[in-house]
Design a protein around this nucleic acid. Sequence first.
DNA 1: CGGCGGTCCTGTCAGC
DNA 2: TGCTGACAGGACCGCC
Length: 278
Amino acid sequence: MPELPEVETVCRGLRPLLVGQRINQVELFRPNLRLPFPLNLAEVLEGQQIVAINRRAKYILILLERDDVLLMHLGMSGKVVVYPLRRNQRLPHDHALFILENGSEMAFNDARRFGLITLTTQTLLHQHPLLSSLGPEPLEEAFTADYLHSIFQGKTSPVKTALMDNHNVVGVGNIYACESLFVAGIAPGKPAGSLTKPECIRLVTAIREVLEAALIAGGSTLKDYVQAKGEAGYFQHQFQVYGREGEACYRCGTLIARIRQAGRSSFYCPHCQNNTRS
DNA sequence: CGGCGGTCCTGTCAGC
DNA sequence: TGCTGACAGGACCGCC
């Protein structure tokens, strides 16, 4: 269940458990996830100390003392759980274990196997093919209404699809695209290139608000999620439109609609997001 | 070249 | 209860 706020919270939860620890041993239970595991994965990691944990988009970056970086993505169903002691048996869909110096173990678990684990280096980080063409972080300063307005120029694709495109902005998945467009009062089907500057201002503000709120909600949930093996967070209780097809809009009472865009479900309020605001 | 659909997997749930 | 099909929070690839 990794959206950007959850990945960020996973990183925050992992930091006190992992930074300063040495990786003693790596165990792999299959040769690949979305990409093949590097053949030298264990060889590179074993014996190295973890010096920092960062995030870029939905990628978790575990920085090691000798310039190497363990790069992980949780895909749709991935989880990272740190167990304080070595377990006797692994859970279904545990694909990789990282045994730490203090006897704890980090398990990478992913039922659907859309996640990935690979290696890069801090030196080459920004040139890595998975990272090199990513757009700005939505919570950082480079993500402005001016930027969004300019990058949307000439785009005929629906604004909702454009928001989910990592080249434009990272970390906005299906849920947050829907929720942000509702908060901004913009219909998901509106062509990205037709957004006015005021709409871009509202949209950037809405994306920030929604992500920050989710970060707060995910924060307190995922703390023990990482340390133990908790289940879903509780941000879903704050959804305004996502998953609410046929239910009343909290703002106006109109029934929430669902359409399909680029193969994904989009939820919106036909009244509050009718494109007449500007 | 931009945009869309297909695809990688397994799990869950609604409906019959 | 058991089967079937739709659908799922991501992101790449290839085709038009």
